[in-house]
Amino acid sequence: MNCLLCHSPYNPITNWRQLLFLEDPDVLCPRCRGSFKLIDGRLCEICGRLLEEAAPSLCADCLRWQEDEQWGRVLVKNRSVYTYNDWMKDVIALWKFRGDYVIVEAFRHPFARAFAEHFGRGWHVVPIPLSPERLCERGFNQAEALACLLPFPSFPWLARRHSEKQSKKSRRERMETDNPFFLPGHPPLAGKRIVLIDDIYTTGITVRHAARVLLGAGAAEVGALTLVRA
């Protein structure tokens, strides 16, 4: 087999279990797989970032969120699969910006495992949408691609207005911009637990904007599962 990322040949069978139980072999070679760093250890209860052993249970950013009357408790929790190391930056650039869609396959098992561990049945999967303009430019929505990895249906309940690219703004600016999300119809949200799917959690403003729209329409609680915690 050839590695999905570096294209070099490798032996995908690493142990007997795999052969006996016909588990899907990894699509990445060991070197590429090993370059991703899973988030593992003590986490901030809300945003899911890795904490020092002695630190309090919320990180400084989340404390700030919780103190805010408007934004506190909008998001019950975010969990991310990987840290945002240099390798991940390159892979995300290739996947999302160059548009190499198939790379999403490399995340299938870790992403589905994280969903089962932190959320699971009973949560409704809602991918963070792109604006129609951005969707056309990019050709696909990376959050939908991630949502498709999960063994549950996903619900396209949210829509998004066009605004400037998020990555060009500071946290302050992001906080203050108008909420780009809206509900195009009247989805049956009352009393539902929603898990938002996105590629990167940076400041958390995107998922909180989306969460507020959903809570305003009757959702019981909103969490987020993101591929990367920046």
Binding site: Y101, V102, L135, G139, F140
Partner: peptide, 16 residues
């Protein structure tokens, strides 16, 4: 590889 293309609405093959 292929992807669900938002431009043509089909499963669209692309050059990697």
């Amino acid at each position: 590889a292929s992807f669900p293309c938002a431009r043509c609405g089909k499963n669209c093959v692309y050059c990697r």
